[in-house]
Amino acid sequence: MQIDLIKGHGSGNDFLLIDEITNAYSFSEGERAALATLLCDRNSDLGADGILFIMKSDHADGRMRVFNADGSEASMCGNGLRLVARYACEMQGLTEAIIETMKADLKVSKQQDIYPKVTTYQVEISPVSFLLSDLPLNIDEPNLLNEKIPELSQDLTFSALAVPNPHLISIVDLEQMKSVIQRQISEKVNNPNELFPDGVNVSFVKSLDAGSIYVNTFERGVGFTNACGTAMSASTLVTCLQGLNSVEEVINVYNNGGRVQCVVHENDENYSIDLIGNATYLYQAQVDVDLERDTFSVNSKEEFPEQSTYEKLQADAQGYLQKAGL
């Protein structure tokens, strides 16, 4: 099987894009999962956090399906959606579009560059649910906002929400951020356990200057990642609910892969979040895949010149975090 693909990233969260709109690819569900585990292997010639399948939609400008590196499917991916938004908009000559995802049709649009010459897109993150049954989280409460989970920590407080991916968020101090606590909790809730039977994304959040936060995420199906778009969006919302930031204001969200911006919108206690950040292409490649033998080879690879510009944004973000002690 011969496949053309593009590798790109949002905030260092990298993906392989496979276009099923202009190419006559036809994959079974098993093949999608197998492609993800094979091509995303970091020990291979490609490697990525996941695959974004860009598909036709019967009512939107495109459809996105996301498969993690372990072969599991995610209901949403904010960083990946920015890449899909760019691909779909450029392919159709649009500056804004609607992309169908597993749980919702989401608005996307091209934006002013977040940093000089860094291609930037804004994507909608919704729906937002605080019902623990939507994660699910098995405790005897309907929701969890800034409360303790004794089975996980005697000191930390947590908030849980689905956007629609499940997220467990704790606002921490610098010492807690640098400790092994996040890894211990993340591994516990993403291995067989009674609290989160389907696993959960775990984010530690540190408030920085006014209007700025740092988010570090252990992503379900991936592990610690440079950035997780839905986690940064959910974390921004939690800081607004706790009075650290305000709705309808631009919040700078720093991560290990760089910086994005989030804006929380509230309408009759219903929330949505705008996620604004880079959609950077790394290279395009053609591969030959043999799923029966679980092997592939790279026939060609052509680099894009965009990463060097993004690295300037990344260096600025890292410099800011170093001054903050992170």
Rank of each mutant, 00 (worst) to 15 (best):
P136L: 03
D4L: 04
T236I: 00
T309R: 10
A234Q: 10
Y214F: 15
Q318C: 04
S300G: 09
F53N: 04
V172R: 07
D4C: 05
A74E: 04
A162F: 00
M76R: 12
D316S: 13
G80V: 00
E303R: 11
L137R: 11
D4F: 01
D198K: 14
D140L: 04
P150S: 01
Q284D: 12
V202E: 09
S159K: 05
D134Q: 11
S297T: 15
S235V: 01
S308I: 04
Q122T: 08
V260A: 15
A279N: 06
I169E: 08
V172Q: 07
G223C: 09
M91Y: 09
D4K: 14
F67V: 14
A97Q: 13
T37P: 14
A279R: 06
A210N: 12
N79C: 08
E269Q: 15
S186G: 15
Y320V: 03
A279E: 01
G8H: 05
C228I: 02
N146E: 07
G277I: 00
L52P: 11
L145V: 14
L17S: 11
S153Y: 06
D41F: 01
S186Y: 00
S179K: 10
D4G: 04
L38F: 02
Q2N: 13
G50C: 13
L161A: 00
S153R: 12
N245K: 10
L168M: 11
N13D: 02
G258C: 04
E311W: 08
G62H: 07
G10T: 04
P127K: 09
Q286T: 15
N146I: 02
R63W: 08
A24R: 12
D70R: 14
E194P: 12
T239A: 06
K178N: 14
M76T: 05
D45A: 15
L168S: 07
I171T: 06
A162L: 03
I6G: 09
I171S: 02
R86A: 02
S212Y: 05
E20H: 12
K117L: 07
I6A: 06
Q242V: 02
D288S: 06
Y271K: 03
K107E: 08
T95K: 15
R42K: 14
A285I: 04
R259T: 03
L168W: 01
R42C: 06
A104P: 07
L46D: 01
N216Y: 03
D140Y: 01
Y271F: 14
N201C: 13
E20S: 10
A285C: 08
P164T: 02
N201W: 05
